[in-house]
Design a protein around this nucleic acid. Structure first.
Lengths: 118, 118
DNA sequence: ACAATTGTTCAATAACTTTTGAACTAAGGA
DNA sequence: TCCTTAGTTCAAAAGTTATTGAACAATTGT
């Protein structure tokens, strides 16, 4: 089973910007970027909203071509479509991520792990 | 008389992305970038919508910190806030403009001048 | 003073987007 | 098989954004 994704040339600039212009989704993208290489499933993001709501936001990211979602058993593994985005809009994703990294206004993923350090 | 603008540090990433994630506004920004140096007033953009509607979109761009609007007599001169945006989100505006330049999906400003060439 | 030009404001509406909860599907263990 | 885990779908409600037209304000040229 595979989910529908746009091909690289179907990715629309204004749609990508619109999709990234939401704090919840920007926080998801920032977290994906910070954990690149690590396979992430939807429940990692539960800090940002309800299961249903995340399903909605993650679908928006996938449909816009920002993320790729692979179905693996009962999980979905989510990754950034770095190469495709970079080919289509050079530098865009990198500058968005760089700006998002030090944006205190964005909700944090993993806020519940802060005390783990102690 | 001066219009309200956010200071550079009040400019919000997700708001800038959301504001740019609209084809009309992206077309305005693309046109502003293509005519940098030339003072542009609102009526240059009438190809993109009604006077009222442009007033709305141009206010969104100004309030998000993407443009600066100077009141000069009965006109408003609109410019991109390149320096402020670049200081805040390095590379972002440039990559958006570069991608917008060759985006056939965006509405064109100055479509009415196409036959002038013949 | 008058008219034209440039653009704003306001209220209404239309069109979308986000959020919710309940019901559901499908895979993986016990 | 039954239960749990992981996530989706659906319909409704809430909230937000875009578009419109009519009325307004301010400046400039005659």
């Amino acid at each position: 089973m595979t989910l529908p994704h746009p091909t690289a040339d179907q990715i629309s600039l204004s749609n990508v910007l619109a999709v990234l212009g939401d704090p919840t989704r920007l926080a998801i993208v920032r977290y994906l970027a910070s954990k690149e290489g690590v396979p992430l499933n939807c429940s990692q993001f539960l800090d940002l909203g309800s299961k249903t709501n995340l399903s909605y936001h993650l679908a928006k990211l996938r449909e816009a071509g920002v993320t790729r979602t692979e179905v693996v058993g009962t999980s979905r593994l989510i990754t950034l479509r770095r190469d495709d985005l970079n080919a289509r809009f050079p530098g865009l994703l990198d500058s968005v991520i760089a700006a998002a990294v030090d944006d205190p206004a964005l909700p944090a993923v993993g806020a519940s792990e802060i005390e783990v350090r102690a």
